[in-house]
């Protein structure tokens, strides 16, 4: 690709696919085979009767590469639709994380205070640990996890980004 001087953009793509065996492998294989980036990927069935799954991919590349990615995804046979949610100004993105923190005394109180500030919920507790559930944009979760490091962060599990457009229309 000669356009290396072009700037790299991050895009969130929604891909509606037939929920059939191997469809995720096709999508992932396309990214690895053609050297595209995957920053985040989520997939789940969204229509049982229609056997449809929705894949949300966060990827990065030059505008020409992003266009390529969309076209390459669109030509996979089980793909119904590809939508670039970043190209449309009004879309919503959320990620869920579970954050495990270990500590006693003041650190434990501080963890709870921070969780309240971030509107994270306690979903598990022992005398020396908490598991928080937090939802929000990825950078909010990054920030929460970063702050928890000072009070005893043990581990984080994140879902990756899901996204949807604003307004009444489907993708």
């Amino acid at each position: 690709m000669p356009q290396t001087s072009e700037h790299i953009e991050r895009h969130t793509l929604s891909v509606l696919v037939d929920n059939e065996p191997g469809v995720l492998a096709r999508v992932i294989g396309l990214f690895s085979g053609r050297g595209y980036n995957i920053d985040s990927l989520t997939v789940s069935e969204v229509s049982q009767e229609g056997h449809l799954s929705r894949i949300t991919i966060v990827t990065a590349g030059t505008p020409m590469v992003i266009e390529q990615i969309k076209n390459q995804l669109d030509r996979l046979v089980p793909v119904h639709r590809v939508r670039d949610l970043t190209a449309e100004a009004t879309s919503l993105e959320r990620e869920l994380a579970m954050v495990k923190v270990r500590g006693v005394g003041e650190a434990r109180v501080e963890a709870l205070r921070l969780a309240e500030a971030f509107r994270a919920r306690v979903i598990d507790a022992t005398r020396e640990s908490f598991v928080f559930e937090i939802t929000g944009k990825s950078d909010k979760i990054d920030q929460f996890a970063y702050l928890m490091e000072t009070v005893g962060l043990v581990e984080v599990a994140r879902t990756g980004v899901v996204a949807i457009s604003r307004g009444p229309q489907a993708m």
């Binding site: 690709m1 356009q3 020409m64 266009e67 390529q68 390459q72 669109d74």
Partner: peptide, 11 residues
């Protein structure tokens, strides 16, 4: 006929 051929190598 293949949209992915367009703008792949040459704009």
């Amino acid at each position: 006929i293949d949209p992915s051929s367009i703008n792949k190598n040459v704009k």
